Simulated assay, not measured.
Amino acid sequence: MSGVFRPMMCMVLQGAKEASIGGKTVHYDEACYLVATMELAGRGRVIRASLERPYLCVALSIDLEGLASLLPAVPVKEEGQQPAFAVNPVTDDLIAAWGRLLGLLDTPEDIPVLAPLIEREILYRLLQGPQGAVLRQAAFAGSHHAQVRRAMLWLKEHYAEPMRIDDLAEMAGMSPASFHRHFKAAAAMSPLQYQKALRLQEARRLLASNADAARTAFAVGYESPSQFSREYARAFGLPPARDAQRLKGVRMEDAV
């Protein structure tokens, strides 16, 4: 499945999955967890599951304001340029916190009071982990990470519009060269590649809903249907019309 990863933590309880963002692919299973700190365009694929042992995971959206409130309590680690997504080993502290959070399902009356406290503990454990530095950057409004994310959010809302690197760099408060470098370091792709990924993902969603290929191309910002068809096939393995048929077939099988 293609989509946009929101700032989140994902921990696999059973099975295994891979996530591909830009030119980087990571795998995670019961022994590790995924952290994403930006709205990253990518793909996810379950790579280990069966009827007897289906894929099962838990995920927590990262509250950046809540994260920021924890920064004074966690020592600052060395901060270099880090990607906005990574896989790290699961710790006993994280497993214990998640166990308590899931245990609240048995006492729903406790959820309003206790769930926020346990979610805060999970964020605290993440700040203590290998991704602590990049999480700190995500929570700090003046960091390069936060500046890049500001431009990324604009692209997510305006993916069909023409894009100028100079305008995005100004939005982020950086020089064009610095913006391009920090964007690629965080997202594993250039701003242009990010925009293209967003366009193609939205096109795939429209095509699965019976939209016409040529109209879809123009709707997501392409000026040439033939260029759209080439880039779509390169991204998803089939031309738009054939991929739409495949998607509809998969959905029909799921319904059956």
Rank of each mutant, 00 (worst) to 15 (best):
R53N: 07
P54G: 10
P54T: 05
C57T: 02
L60P: 06
D63E: 09
E65W: 00
E65K: 13
G66L: 04
L67M: 14
A68V: 00
A68G: 02
S69L: 06
S69M: 05
S69D: 15
L70T: 09
L71K: 09
A73I: 00
V74C: 10
V74T: 09
P75W: 01
P75G: 07
P75T: 02
V76G: 03
V76I: 02
K77I: 01
E79T: 02
E79V: 13
G80P: 02
G80H: 03
G80M: 08
Q82S: 06
Q82A: 11
Q82C: 11
P83K: 01
A84I: 06
A84N: 00
A86L: 10
V87M: 02
V87G: 03
V87K: 03
V87R: 07
P89H: 13
P89F: 00
V90K: 06
T91Q: 08
D92G: 02
D93G: 07
L94W: 00
L94Y: 00
I95V: 03
A96D: 14
W98R: 05
G99F: 03
L101A: 14
L102C: 12
L102W: 08
L102R: 07
G103H: 10
L104P: 06
L105M: 11
T107Q: 14
T107C: 04
P108W: 04
D110C: 12
D110A: 13
I111A: 12
I111W: 11
I111E: 01
I111L: 08
I111V: 13
P112N: 09
P112K: 06
A115V: 03
P116F: 06
P116Q: 02
E119F: 08
E121I: 04
E121H: 01
I122A: 15
I122G: 10
L123T: 06
Y124E: 01
L126V: 04
L126H: 05
L127M: 12
Q128R: 15
Q128A: 15
G129A: 15
P130S: 14
G132P: 06
V134K: 14
